[in-house]
Design a protein around this nucleic acid. Structure first.
Length: 397
RNA sequence: GCAGGGUUAGUGAAGCGGUCAAACACGUCAGACUGUAAAUCUGAUGGCUUAUGCCUUCGCAGGUUCGAAUCCUGCACCCUGCA
């Protein structure tokens, strides 16, 4: 029996439930995977994270390479040991940073006067892409670094997550069609092959280490032909699963996922990268996504936005100052079982660190529970009821 | 009692004759966040308001000036030296 496997339990249309087995445990799918970029989910201990029902954590190769260094994590015995998380783990390849550091904030040019407006971007471009890889400036100290598929694989092997991603180029929706074609043909696809080759070599060199599954990442922006082409191309390669990548708009998300899923091999898991808003989760799952990760519940929570069954609230608003109810009456998370909106409002206003912890616990558990519910409803064949009931309440429709 | 310094919008604090409804910070009120350069960022914050518009403000009361938060006089309160 391999150290990595995916079993499908039930299927309705493109939606399906199943389980991914990794060396560090099983992930029942569909599943939401919280993001702990720097080998920590900000504001939570691993125990607190576990208590939200999170089944796995996704960390980031770029951040951990820069600090503390992936070699150090290797010395520590791998990501699980280093961060004291005993469950399954993922690492992102650094591909996202190709985009986020590469775009920077464009300087706004006043077309009339041809003068830069007052709102100059405060962020300068920190990454430059070529067909062989990406040159980065560290956001920590400005030092120059170079990533390519091989380097990303080496880093991800040293970190040692159970599921790792091929090095890809995440384009933006503003890039031209021609650029998207070029990005796929000259970078994302060749890089996928190079990632796979490097991964195989490294796996042989590190036979004593737990098996790492490599997922290829499908790109193609908003174009059906490119999405299908990318999925087909990667689907024929020897990946353990697939990442569904790219910046997507809400209105076309489900459709785009479907295009990819229709071309991908059915028996391998599909991980939707960077999605977690409730309506998007439904869209992705019913079009065949098995897992997804996102920073949003944590980040948004740290900034005071908390999920309730009837929509998101901003707990820092004045109206919650004397609201002695829990964030959500029906929520069984630690925060809702023990604290009031008034108290959390106070913590945020006082700038207390506990505000971040309580908010993060709630938001992560809220999304985990939502997906748990979806999983059960697919197994029970009550998905559409669940979805309609849930969304009509949340979006007040 | 004598000499000097001070009193500015919710708070602290710039301004020291026109470009001042008054910098900045904090606070307050809202908004944004989707593979985390994020415990971050953005906007509003005297009143009325669609306003490049009007009205009321810079301890209080007078005065000088075309024009005063800014200069003068008196008053009130607060600090600091010397008695």
């Amino acid at each position: 029996m391999a150290d990595f496997s995916f079993n499908i339990s039930s299927q309705h249309g493109l939606a399906r439930t199943g389980s991914i087995t990794t060396p560090h445990g099983v992930i029942n799918t569909p599943a939401f995977i919280p993001v702990g970029t720097q080998a920590t989910l900000k504001a939570l201990t691993p125990e607190q994270l576990k208590s939200t029902g999170a089944q796995a954590v996704l960390a980031n190769a770029y951040h951990l390479y820069l600090r503390p260094g992936s070699g150090l994590i290797d010395k520590a015995g791998g990501l699980n040991k280093f961060m004291n998380w005993d469950g399954p783990t993922f690492t992102d390849s650094g591909g996202f940073q190709v985009m986020s550091l590469g775009t920077g904030f464009k300087k706004v040019i006043d077309l009339n006067g041809d003068q830069p407006s007052k709102k100059l971007g405060k962020k300068d471009k920190l990454a430059w892409v070529d067909n062989d890889g990406v040159t980065f400036k560290s956001h920590l100290d400005g030092s120059l670094h170079r990533f390519n598929p091989r380097v990303s694989m080496e880093i991800q092997h040293q970190i040692g997550a159970d599921i790792i991603f091929a090095f890809d180029e995440l384009t933006t929706l503003h890039d031209s069609y021609d650029y998207q074609v070029e990005s796929l043909d000259q970078r994302t696809h060749p890089w996928a092959i190079q990632s796979l080759e490097a991964h195989k070599q490294l796996s042989l060199q590190r036979k004593d280490k737990p098996y790492q599954a490599l997922f290829g990442v499908v790109q193609g922006a908003q174009y059906e032909d490119l999405r299908r082409k990318s999925a087909k191309f990667l689907g024929e390669l020897d990946f353990d699963g697939f990442g569904l990548g790219g910046a997507l708009t809400k209105d076309s998300m489900g459709e785009i996922v479907r295009w990819m899923v229709e071309e991908l091999p059915e028996e391998k898991p599909r991980h939707m990268l960077g999605i977690s808003e409730p309506d998007d989760i439904f869209e992705c799952i019913e079009n065949g996504a098995d897992t997804f990760d996102c920073v949003s519940p944590a980040r948004v929570g740290r900034n005071g936005a908390l999920y309730t069954l009837s929509g998101r609230i901003n707990i820092t608003n004045a109206r919650y100052k004397e609201d002695f109810r829990p964030i959500d009456e029906s929520c069984d998370c630690y925060t809702c079982q023990n604290y009031t909106r008034a108290y959390i409002n106070h913590l945020f206003r006082a700038g207390e660190l506990l505000s971040n912890t309580l908010a993060t616990i709630h938001n992560e558990q809220f999304i985990v529970r939502l997906v748990d519910g979806i999983r059960m409803s697919i197994d029970d064949d009550t998905y559409h009821n669940y979805k309609n009931r849930w969304l009509s309440c949340y979006y007040n429709k």
